[in-house]
Write a protein that binds this DNA or RNA. Sequence first.
DNA 1: CTAAAACCTCGAGCCACTGGAGGTTCAACC
DNA 2: GGTTGAACCTCCAGTGGCTCGAGGTTTTAG
Lengths: 142, 142
Amino acid sequence: MLTIGNLAKRTGTKVQTIRYYEQVGLMPEPGRTDGGQRRYGDAELDRLSFIRHARQLGFSLDAIRELLDLSDHPARSCEEADAIARRQLKQVKQRMARLELLRVELERMIEECSGGQAADCRVLEVLRDHAECLTDHEGIGT
Amino acid sequence: MLTIGNLAKRTGTKVQTIRYYEQVGLMPEPGRTDGGQRRYGDAELDRLSFIRHARQLGFSLDAIRELLDLSDHPARSCEEADAIARRQLKQVKQRMARLELLRVELERMIEECSGGQAADCRVLEVLRDHAECLTDHEGIGT
DNA sequence: CTAAAACCTCGAGCCACTGGAGGTTCAACC
DNA sequence: GGTTGAACCTCCAGTGGCTCGAGGTTTTAG
């Protein structure tokens, strides 16, 4: 039987985060000691590992909910899990493309910085000059 | 004189976002009509363009505040602006490296998906199998 | 003059946590 | 058995950067 702190250590999660997952229904309500402290078994350890791994892969909590549901019903089609993963991959690729544009522009800005007064600073100039703006108006979409 | 809606269109911003920027002190309080509606001039258009461009480059609102402060005082050193840009570039590179790892793992997952029942699905298996976990415990850091 | 589009304020909600206050329980050691 | 002190508990608030909605007012075109 694991305390919440040990479960946290084993999965690289913060204690508060585990309680949060319980609150939003991703983790089940665990058993408690007489004093009211949570105690976890192997099933919960596995489930939390699954969640953390999926988070590291960038899945949203909603997507993880779907995946957990799927893995609780192994007779259902694999296609759903595949679709979720593909959606995720698409997002990752989009973010990378966006970041690549930013990287290029930032490097140019830094390279052209004269090191003098702010009045001559290319960093500020590039940001100020609307003509050099990326043409789309999408924002960066964290 | 621009209405808030026109300013929004010209800069690719939502109206609410402009009001939000005013609320957090990034945009100044503009003049108003007798009826109380905001009216903007060219200075505000420039300032908002600056902000939007910086956002597209991934700068946080705090960083933008610093940059605006800098560009309001052009006699000060360029080094600060340069440092901010460099910090930003570092972050962008880190995010890209992280995303590249995710991309590889997601592609492997999808490629190995058997297309059958969830019970045989590699996507779920990879997520379930703790041994295939990325070794570090950093999370994805949006 | 009227209709409707655009504006106003205020407040709440989103995601995925994170931190803190203030109090209780557990485990180890003497 | 008693005493620490680390770990636990609940509850609430805050983060960033918006975004939406309700319910009401102003502006503008016809």
